[in-house]
Amino acid sequence: MLESLNPEQFTLSTEDGAPFITLHRVTVSNVHGWSVLSRRTVIVVDGPEDEGFLLPRMTGPDVDLAPENWDVAVSSATSVGVLVSGTQIAATVID
């Protein structure tokens, strides 16, 4: 089951045009088999079995937590780097 995270529990960023999600104060048991679905109001970070996270992207009518170039970075990437407890996961982009 997806765990809903508060905006304080994650950071969305891009580095050299590549999208990254940093999850704070969460753990995962498996680093393989992850995917990311990014939409205008929400981002789903889906893991194997019952692991996964639901990230609110919009916190108000005009308050987007994603950096300005997020959508371009995600649409041109095959994976999103997800950093969890010091471990980086390559999550496949789902369109």
Rank of each mutant, 00 (worst) to 15 (best):
S76H: 09
A73P: 03
D64Q: 13
R40T: 08
D64C: 13
Q88D: 12
G47A: 05
G60R: 11
G86D: 11
Q9L: 05
V45H: 04
G52H: 07
V45E: 04
V42E: 15
I94F: 11
L55G: 05
L65Y: 03
E15G: 06
F10G: 05
V84N: 15
G47I: 01
S4D: 06
G33R: 01
V84K: 09
T11S: 14
E49F: 01
A66T: 06
R39K: 14
L12Q: 06
A18Y: 05
P67A: 13
S85Q: 05
V82Y: 04
L65K: 07
V72R: 12
N69P: 02
D64P: 06
S4T: 02
S35Y: 02
E8W: 00
I89S: 12
S75P: 00
T92Y: 09
S79K: 15
L55H: 04
R25E: 14
F20D: 04
V26R: 03
L5Y: 00
V36G: 11
T41D: 15
L2P: 05
S79C: 12
A73N: 08
R39G: 14
R57N: 13
V28T: 08
R57E: 14
T11A: 15
T92C: 09
S38M: 07
G86F: 00
A77P: 08
L5E: 03
D95K: 15
D71A: 15
D46Q: 12
D62A: 15
S38R: 09
A73Q: 11
W70D: 11
F53M: 10
E3A: 02
V28A: 10
R57G: 13
R25S: 14
R25H: 08
V26E: 04
T14H: 09
Q9S: 13
T92I: 09
M1L: 03
T59M: 12
S4M: 00
V84W: 00
R40L: 12
L23R: 01
H24F: 03
W34L: 12
D64R: 10
T41P: 02
P61V: 11
D71L: 15
